[in-house]
Design a protein around this nucleic acid. Structure first.
Lengths: 350, 350
DNA sequence: CTGAAAGCGCTAACAT
DNA sequence: ATGTTAGCGCTTTCAG
């Protein structure tokens, strides 16, 4: 089927190859390849002719062929569980930006449906046209991390710091962020502070919980297990957990949710109970997604430098692509407390 | 560089190819190819042997090679401007599901940064390993639609119905949905109904505006240009437009936002002005993203069958991949009015 | 039913 | 500096 006919006999337009460009420019096609890849050893004059021919013919490289032939593809894969809200958006924006600057393309793969074959999926991916792989918040990464390492395939994980594994990663200072949030609440006089965790299989969720505990301990406040409710980073769950927390006989005066989405759920629950915000309940989130400043009252939260994390991960990956044996780095970017309107000092009367 | 050495001399594990499988199974590699592609003319016994060898060696096809050699890649590309909120999520979920069922892989490309080179980008894509392309809400698609058509490359647009172009697409009944929303508001006694448009370059945004006008006209209510504010489908803009609308000397008693995110912005603006919802202002959105039911008051909105749209688009695309010359279809899926708590009949006193 | 062999478009030695 | 050539892994004729 040399001619690539479609099933009904329609003809696919023949692809313009470097051979065509070479003919047009009157040079060998190796020279065209050199020009395309910006290699040295091409006379300015011929380079010019090739460039012109390329433009004229509308030549576009065939990445499959390039990749097959052993060249770099200048694309990196991005593996995510599923696309969720602004959180991913911002990280991806950062990645995108950094990659674009270095002339790399991004391919995004969603895996959420293939829990079982993730490993095979990654294998397939790494044999594919990507030069490297970025993983955001992988759930059961353990399975394919081995594959990646074995194949010496450049990869960086974003927002996942499993302390047991030595994997290149970029994340935020989750422990510190949570600690800061708690310190703030504590400084406001709150003592009974409810905490809604994230998905506990994630390192970031665990670190935040640890930060919560540490702050409490440092302030000499005994931890009350009833004050901790297990969430999953999603708004409905935040709502549920808040209901639970707010039903406690000794109601918390503040709730610290492990991310903004759940904090929004807390707001709903509080409002539904007729609680005034922030008078009757102080709320702190985590992430600082754009919406945090839109809601009412504007959410006090711990900002994660999401975009920066993405950018940073991309740079790190590019480094590994260039130097596969570079030392494994685990970058932690600083979080910041963003004070808005959802918290208030504990008044004596309440 | 036959051996594919890394820059520091580390060796990349050699890929397992069909030749390895052939050796292991003791057959020619053409036979392995036949087995992989489920072609006829292979004895059950050899097929069995090949399958076993594949499993044993952990063979995974190299898509680049396959694609280069002219076979199908069983992957479809998905082109989006940027990843925004739950809206994309849901559509993608539907696409994902349909594709998975047919054993296709999805590759997602974000283009938002390359406004200018989109056309070249698409060309590149279509020369790549995708068998077909799905486009969600493309902004300036006109540029590459031609390329797609010229190359006879299977493609389907989701949520974009530019009436001037004959392009395969799937969308919702935007006009009808807007008309229904307005009818509902009108039936509640509202007369002065503010409207916040979407990004006007999109067909769906225009259709919703048309629906707004048509409903007004059918009810004999003269259109007031002051009541229409141009938004962009984003929450902050919804907030802005609402401020504008609510500052009108003759304030609207209801606002219909072209999507849910903007409706949330309206809620903020209203709350900030001390307006009670829905007593002082009725609000209707469009889309019915998950959050619509979380907010307070729960948002009355027009549901778009997002997931279904994605699924439908995927099926249509698969059809074009199988039959490139199949007739161009433009599917419109029905919208539905979802009544929640953000609207109230206009009382005589207000 | 099966194997041999010719490319797909490109990169990277290897010559010149 | 430039051309020649050998594959990359796979699909698909084309012969048996």
């Amino acid at each position: 089927m040399r001619q690539r006919e479609t099933d009904k006999g329609g003809q696919m337009a023949r692809e313009i190859t470097i051979v065509d460009v070479a003919d047009e420019a009157g040079v060998s096609y190796a020279t065209v390849s050199r020009v395309i890849n910006n290699k040295a050893h091409v006379s300015p004059e011929k380079r010019e002719r090739v460039l012109r021919a390329m433009a004229q013919l509308g030549y576009v490289v065939n990445m499959q062929a390039r990749s097959l032939a052993g060249g770099e593809s200048r694309v990196v894969g991005l593996l995510v569980d599923y696309l969720s809200s602004s959180y991913m958006d911002e990280i991806i924006r950062g990645i995108d930006e950094a990659l674009d600057a270095e002339n790399y393309d991004l391919m995004l793969y969603t895996t959420h449906r293939r829990k079982t074959k993730e490993s095979a999926y990654v294998t397939k991916l790494t044999r594919g046209l990507a030069d490297g792989l970025l993983l955001i918040l992988p759930r059961n990464a353990a399975a394919y991390l081995d594959t990646l390492r074995q194949r010496q395939f450049p990869h960086v994980i974003v927002d996942y710091l499993n302390n047991k594994q030595n994997v290149p990663s970029v994340s935020a200072t989750n422990f510190r962020g949570a600690y800061d949030a708690m310190s703030f609440l504590l400084s406001l006089g709150h003592q009974r502070i409810g905490f809604i965790t994230g998905t506990m299989e994630l390192g970031s969720a665990r670190d935040r919980l640890d930060g919560y505990h540490a702050a409490l301990k440092d302030h000499g406040i005994p931890a009350d297990p009833h004050l901790i409710s297990e969430g999953n980073f999603m708004q409905p769950q935040g709502y549920q957990c808040a209901q639970e927390l707010l039903s406690l006989s000794e109601r918390p005066t503040a709730i610290f949710a492990s991310n903004d989405m759940m904090a929004f759920g807390v707001m709903e629950a509080a409002r539904e109970r007729g609680l005034r915000l922030p008078e009757d309940l102080s709320i702190v989130g985590f992430d600082d997604i754009p919406q945090a400043s839109y809601v009412h009252p504007a959410l006090t939260t711990i900002r994660q430098p999401l975009e920066e994390m993405g950018r940073s991960a991309a740079h790190l990956l590019l480094k590994y692509i260039a130097h596969p044996n570079a030392e494994i780095e685990r970058i932690e970017l600083p979080t910041h407390l963003i004070i808005r309107e959802s918290c208030q000092a504990l008044s004596f009367t309440s």
